Computed example of a mutant assay.
Amino acid sequence: MSDSTRTPAPKRRNLAIGASVVAAALLFGWFSYTATKPETPAAASGSDKVAEVTRPEQAEQGQNDTYTQLAKLARRDAGDPLAQGPADAPVVMIEYADFKCGFCGKFARDTEPALVKKYVDAGKLRIEWRNFPIFGEESEAAARGAWAAGQQGRFWEFHAAAYADGAKEKGFGADRLKALAEEAGVADLDRFVRDADSKKAREAVSRDQEEAYGLGAASTPSFLINGRPIAGAQPAETFTQAIDEALAAAPRGKAAGEGAK
């Protein structure tokens, strides 16, 4: 089936959340550009970067409306093996990442564990992973392998193994992916191989990838925290500030984005 003859599922989802999609794409594209452009003296300090990443010069109300629409991209599927934290957590962080991305690995090793301990374990944050392979065939293969590990309840263990220091330098060929699955504790390795090469795996990865492209994401890692975009492996303070602000703004007893569907 030709890609040119169908409308990708993520694209249909983006269209469904309204006219703010265009603004969202522009906003996320701006964040991606900001995160990857050469650093200037004005952006040298961590506090300046927080302000630059989280507060672009746009009308506050329009920006908040866009965040509200983007927050609806959270799937909140209690059975999602590529997510952690309660489905009804007040804050959802969607992460678009690639296993061959060095900055994604840095975030996974240096920043994410503390966020899990502080917020996920307390029931305040849900992290939803989106496969966003942008570095070629091995990226695609690793994404499908991660999905396949998730089908046996070992996604986050595979995630840790694939992002271990020095892991990406060994590549993500077929034998290496099988070794990572074994390291992650995947019980049925034959099933893992079949699942990773299945149509369902390709469709799941494509869905996530197209969702990211539809938002204008141009680099990895990229994030949405209750709809607020953050691009790049920013300092930990950037994430804690965004999560704390989202917690303060979230309606009590109701997950962000609910009630406006």
Score class of each variant (00 low, 15 high):
Lys124Asp: 10
Glu237Val: 14
Ala19Met: 11
Pro90His: 04
Thr68Asn: 12
Thr111Ala: 04
Ile230His: 00
Gln152Thr: 00
Glu210Gly: 12
Arg207Leu: 14
Trp30Cys: 10
Ala89Asn: 06
Ala24Tyr: 02
Tyr119Asn: 04
Pro251Thr: 09
Ala174Ser: 13
Phe158Glu: 06
Ala181Cys: 03
Glu137His: 12
Asp121Ile: 08
Leu26Val: 13
Trp156Cys: 09
Thr220Ile: 06
Val22Ile: 14
Val22Thr: 14
Ala217Asn: 10
Leu180Ser: 07
Asp77Arg: 09
Arg6Thr: 15
Asp208Pro: 08
Ile134His: 09
Pro221Gln: 07
Ala51Ser: 12
Ala97Arg: 06
Val21Asn: 11
Ala217Gln: 05
Glu128Cys: 01
Gly62Tyr: 07
Leu73Met: 06
Arg228Gln: 14
Ala162Ser: 11
Gly232Asn: 01
Ala233Asp: 10
Gly185Glu: 06
Thr66Glu: 00
Tyr96Gly: 07
Ala249Ile: 03
Arg194Pro: 01
Ala42Arg: 12
Glu245Leu: 06
Pro229Ser: 05
Ile134Glu: 06
Lys72Gly: 02
Glu211Asp: 11
Val22Asn: 10
Gln209Cys: 08
Gly214Leu: 07
Lys37Thr: 14
Asp110Glu: 13
Lys118Gly: 00
Ala249Leu: 08
Ala25Trp: 02
Ala201Ser: 10
Ala16Pro: 03
Phe158Asn: 02
Asp190Leu: 08
Glu211Met: 15
Ser20Phe: 09
Ala248Asn: 09
Asp175Glu: 14
Leu177Gly: 05
Gly257Ser: 00
Pro8Lys: 08
Lys49Val: 11
Ala250Glu: 03
Ile134Lys: 05
Leu224Ile: 05
Thr34Phe: 12
Lys118Pro: 00
Ala89Glu: 01
Arg109Trp: 04
